[in-house]
């Protein structure tokens, strides 16, 4: 029972990060119908930039903002200088996919040059030292911070998307660019904002992932990307609440397979189960609620 409760805590902290990362990927897909493979690299850059900020002595919540801003900026640049020119030139959607992969490799290369290939750690935060024992369950203050930050980010995201004029504009572009133009939305600006939000979520997820495992490396974006895409598909492509649920589910699956089976099989079991779920429900666990394109 204690092991079980412990895994729930661990699973929720990692799952909340997956959820934050996956809603960014889902947003891009929902609005532009493309998959941005550079999101994983944005996550990694977020972690690296956040690490620099932490070394500079900034408190954790501020480094989170720095990481989010860094990721968001990259998102905007990728749209402005890569995705948009490709669309304008009439490139097929697959061209965007391949270009985003190239961008990811480029960013990994740049990060290797600047930050080195060595795995690095965050300066010890006071939060990792605070540990509560409740029954037999160890809860780090850091884990609570991560879950709280992830939940705040998701609520903020939901608020912007559902309750603001900007959010309605983004959802309208997702439905149809022509309809967005008809009501006076500047589609290009709305798209840039979309890329900023998705990039910022990736950057923030990168920082949270870095502090949770206390590991930052130029290659951390690769496995995160695979997980983000998995969660996105699991949740039903383009379905944001589905991505949130899928993120938590994957996090829990992973820690439970480590606790009860073997860490060697962590990914195999996690992804194996996802494969099974998709075999049973090919449209994703939470399909049916997604914002459909017209």
């Amino acid at each position: 029972m204690e092991v079980f409760a412990q895994q729930i805590v661990n699973g929720l902290s990692i799952g909340s990060i997956y959820a934050v990362f996956a809603i960014g990927c889902t947003l891009i897909f929902g609005v532009l119908n493309i998959i941005n493979l550079a999101q994983g690299a944005f996550l990694m850059i977020g972690a690296c930039v956040g690490l620099e900020a932490a070394r500079f002595g900034l408190p954790l919540p501020v480094t989170l903002l720095v990481a989010a801003f860094g990721g968001g900026l990259l998102g905007v640049l990728s749209e402005q200088f890569m995705f948009r020119p490709l669309r304008k030139a009439g490139g097929h959607r697959w061209m965007g996919l391949v270009a985003s992969l190239a961008l990811a490799r480029l960013l990994v290369g740049v990060a290797q040059e600047i930050f080195g290939t060595e795995v690095q750690a965050y300066p010890r935060s006071s939060m990792s030292a605070i540990i509560w024992q409740i029954g037999g369950v160890r809860i780090q203050a850091l884990q609570l911070f991560i879950i709280a930050a992830a939940v705040v980010l998701m609520l903020l995201f939901a608020f912007i998307l559902q309750r603001t004029s900007l959010g309605r504009a983004i959802r309208t572009v997702a439905f149809s660019e022509d309809v967005a133009r008809i009501v006076g939305v500047r589609v290009e600006s709305a798209t840039l904002v979309t890329f900023f939000i998705a990039g910022a979520l990736a950057g923030a997820a990168g920082l949270l992932l870095g502090v949770l495992f206390n590991v930052v490396s130029p290659f951390m974006g690769d496995s995160a990307l695979v997980k983000g895409l998995t969660v996105m598909i699991l949740g039903g492509l383009g379905n944001i609440p589905g991505a949130v649920a899928g993120g938590f589910l994957l996090g829990l699956l992973e820690v439970f397979s480590v606790a009860y089976v073997s860490s060697a099989f962590r990914d195999a079991i996690g992804f194996g189960l996802i494969f099974l779920i998709l075999l049973v429900k090919p449209t994703g666990l939470f399909s049916g609620f997604e914002e459909r394109r017209a």
Binding site: R168, A169, R171, G184
Partner: peptide
């Protein structure tokens, strides 16, 4: 649109995944 010209498009094109109220609010976007 900002200049005062609005189109009711062929086939209506209401935003199916948004509420009636949100559809009206997006109409006032400008």
């Amino acid at each position: 649109v900002r200049g005062g010209v609005s189109l009711v498009p062929e086939g209506r094109r209401v935003i199916a995944s948004m509420s009636v109220e949100d559809n009206l609010l997006i109409g006032a976007y400008v």
